[in-house]
Design a protein around this nucleic acid. Structure first.
Lengths: 109, 109
DNA sequence: CCTTTCGGTCTACAATGTATACCATCAGAG
DNA sequence: CTCTGATGGTATACATTGTAGACCGAAAGG
């Protein structure tokens, strides 16, 4: 795989949303986080496709959790970002922080 | 064309690099900024293609400047981010800042 | 001349982003 | 029991972005 691969912007947001939800990172919560923080409508297709691709690149993993909730008896997927995923997030973040430097006047408000 | 369009991650970096270079935002300088800040190799094809697309979306404009430099007598393109471009950058930045919130321990190192 | 550098264009293809149509399971209404 | 509405997913297809590489002309420098 290309050593020089970068996270797409949506991929990045999905990973961050998973981190934000931590122990509660199931599909529903992650979507809510995205819609709230990124102010962005997320369809199921877009969402699960991206999740699958991130898994294939080893940036996330998941495990099935028996639904403790009275609601549906269905197990839920609980997502986690891998160390590789974290490393990618750091790379993107570092680059952006450097590029934003000094532009506060322009980019704020 | 989606009404809900977002800046790609490379597009975003190109716009930021233009802002960083300000009055010196010609092709060479912008590429240097990208390679330095994003630590990323940028081929001409990738670079100009992205520039063209950003122009088509009205996120940047440019004007030809007679080369005042003794170097080549060639005019240079001087790039500028439009207000629309700035607005997009702000949107992305706001979303990321919200998504990074509280994750410093994880994302710093 | 010849070579290198700057500054670009064109073409093609890979990777990401996104919507829509389906599907199965379970809970509750009737 | 049957119908219906979540919940949670999958499959498919297509649009948008990301990226490389070949090719081009002008001019500087040896």
């Amino acid at each position: 795989m290309a050593t020089n691969t970068f996270l797409g912007e949506f991929e990045q947001m999905v990973l961050l949303a998973i981190l934000q939800r931590g122990e509660n990172a199931n599909a529903l919560e992650i979507r809510r986080e995205l819609e709230a923080s990124a102010n962005r409508k997320v369809t199921k297709g877009a969402f699960y496709t991206t999740l699958d691709r991130l898994e294939k690149k080893d940036y996330l993993t998941w495990e099935a959790r028996p639904a403790e909730k009275g609601r549906g008896g269905l197990p839920q997927r609980h997502f986690k970002v891998t160390p590789e995923g974290i490393a990618e997030l750091q790379k993107s973040r570092d680059a952006l922080i450097r590029l934003w430097r000094g532009l506060d006047r322009v980019l704020e408000s």
